[in-house]
Simulated assay, not measured.
Amino acid sequence: MSGAADVFALGGVLVAAAGGQPFGQGTPMMLMYRAVHEPADLSALPQGLRPVAAACLAKAPERRPTPRALLDLLAPLSTAEPAPDAAAHPATEVSPATPPPALSPATPLPALSPTPTAVSTAVSAAAPVAAGGLADAATVSARPKAAAEVPGSPPDKRPVGRVVAAAAGALLVLGGAVYAVSSYDDSSFPPATHELVLPESMVDGAYGRDVEHRLPPDPLPDDAGRKGATHYSADYTVTSTGTEKGVAFRTVEVYGSSGRYKDPEEHRDGLMDAMTVTGGETVGDPPRTIRPPGSDVDIRCTTVDAKTVCGWGDANSAVAIRFTPSAALEAAAEETRRIRAEIRRPIATSTASP
């Protein structure tokens, strides 16, 4: 095992210890979806610790530092500042000719070379770039001329936190996991013409909203494929009206977002994965794309663990709906069409985006 999951958990613990919530609040499905698809919220952390947490919370396991790499990178730097009782217990002096600690060759970062010389060179080049963007981090570079320094010169007493932050920042640059604030051109996204609205009841009163698990809409950060989106989730239960009408489902869980999407079906698939992928799931019906009569969009459906999940993706919304109990995919797709017609509503002309 590589320990990548433990490193990811460490990143979450760092944020939680600072009083933050890396992926916000919400249902387990919502949190799992954000953990897979959304950048973590690191605002609760001091600036100097954010690169460390960001590296640990990288989405791709191979881009996270290994536990060994974290120790090799950070532990030696903790002695940069003497402890309060250093006079009673003087630190062992290190020869100036000793090369600085290098990243472990086991670190699964594509930019790293297994040779210590190449690693030191890479860190020397990357650290100033990474540190330059941190408010509390000093610029750190490799010191290849340490052996030529004047003997007896005072030791470098850079604050430990700054050294750690800069080293972790270098790790981020080398791993290609730098978090940057970007702006996205409005003209590259489709116009916003519709939005989601989760009513108290839907499908002619057949399903009523579960008020005990009500969550407010949750704004989502813009990214290269999505802009101005808001996440929605709500659970519905069949009502007496629905029972009288003979609807096929007892519960309906709506999980989606509305905004402006370049590839809405990709977002739909991500939502459906969040509702179905557990690592030990049993697939009853493989995913299939269905266009029910009267629908203007394809609906994708699958049955996993005795629950049927359907979803759609259009220019302004991406939604996954889980039905219990399972049913024929055609029946679930038709019910999804009816639900979509009720919860996807036009935006007033005065407020629609250009």
Rank of each mutant, 00 (worst) to 15 (best):
A333Q: 02
R340E: 10
A147T: 05
L134E: 11
P155L: 13
V163I: 09
Y33T: 09
R250V: 13
T239S: 13
T351W: 04
S43H: 11
E212T: 14
V173F: 06
I339W: 01
V238E: 10
K157N: 14
V254T: 06
R338N: 08
A40S: 09
W312T: 09
T98D: 08
A111F: 01
P191Q: 11
V36P: 01
G294H: 04
P67S: 14
D223R: 01
A224S: 14
T308D: 12
D136L: 11
P199N: 11
A126F: 00
Y232T: 02
V211R: 15
A306H: 13
A83R: 12
A206Y: 07
L49K: 05
L74G: 04
K262C: 03
A180C: 12
G176A: 03
A69K: 02
P346N: 05
L171R: 02
V247S: 06
R162K: 04
A142R: 08
R209G: 05
V15Q: 02
D6P: 07
S124W: 07
L109K: 01
A165S: 15
A146G: 02
G161V: 06
P116H: 12
P114V: 05
L77Q: 13
P216Q: 09
K145P: 00
L172N: 15
D263M: 06
P190S: 08
T324W: 06
A332F: 01
L196I: 14
H267W: 03
A69E: 14
G311P: 10
K157P: 04
S295L: 07
